Amino acid sequence: MKALVVNGPNLNMLGIREPDIYGRRTYDDLVSLCRDAGGQAGFDEVEVVQSNHEGDLIDMIQQAYGRYDGIVINPAAYTHTSVGLLDALKAVSLPAVEVHISEVDAREAFRQVSYVRGACFATVTGEGLEGYAHALRLLAARLSAR
């Protein structure tokens, strides 16, 4: 099994950006966590990518078609604005899990809407970076059940 972990804007700034919300662990820590957790969940490959540009994220999702078995996505700020990411996830029709480091549903009102959620079979929020491990386990279970 192969998984693609897609990260949206400002996640490259983990450890620097609002550490009271996102913690002090870095993006490199996140990449290591995803690879380790993915291996433990049964994935042969876990690729972790990040971009601050919506079109690049759409390209990454489209390129996953035929290459990966599923996607874990943290669209970050694009969660609340991007129909393009939703459409890309629907287009490739791969099982997907939405993940957020913070508890987005308990934050500002504008964070209450997730466009990508409609293309995801599960959502993990508020578990810090460990939420990615949870999301990868959910994805592995879904893929193994097929």
Rank of each mutant, 00 (worst) to 15 (best):
T79R: 13
S93G: 12
A64E: 06
M13N: 05
E54V: 06
T123L: 14
T26V: 09
E45G: 00
T79M: 14
R67F: 00
A88W: 10
D69E: 09
C34Q: 06
Q50M: 14
D87L: 10
Y115T: 05
R17L: 04
D56E: 15
G84Y: 07
V124S: 04
V72M: 11
A119Y: 00
D69I: 03
N74H: 03
V31H: 12
I21K: 13
D69A: 11
G70S: 11
L30W: 03
E54R: 08
Y115E: 00
L85I: 15
N12V: 03
Q50I: 08
T125W: 09
V116H: 12
A88L: 12
L89K: 05
S102H: 02
A109K: 15
Q63I: 12
A76V: 00
T125I: 13
H100F: 07
I61R: 02
I58N: 04
L11Q: 10
R17W: 01
I16Q: 13
C120T: 14
L89S: 13
D87Q: 04
V48W: 08
L136Q: 04
G126M: 10
V48H: 08
S102Y: 02
G66L: 03
D20Y: 11
P95A: 02
S51P: 09
M13A: 14
F121L: 12
V83I: 15
R117G: 08
P75Q: 15
L57V: 11
V97A: 08
L14K: 01
E18S: 04
D59S: 13
D29M: 02
P95W: 13
V49E: 14
A96M: 03
I73A: 09
Q63L: 13
P75G: 07
P19R: 08
G128V: 03
V31Y: 08
S102E: 01
I101D: 12
A122V: 12
S51C: 07
V48R: 11
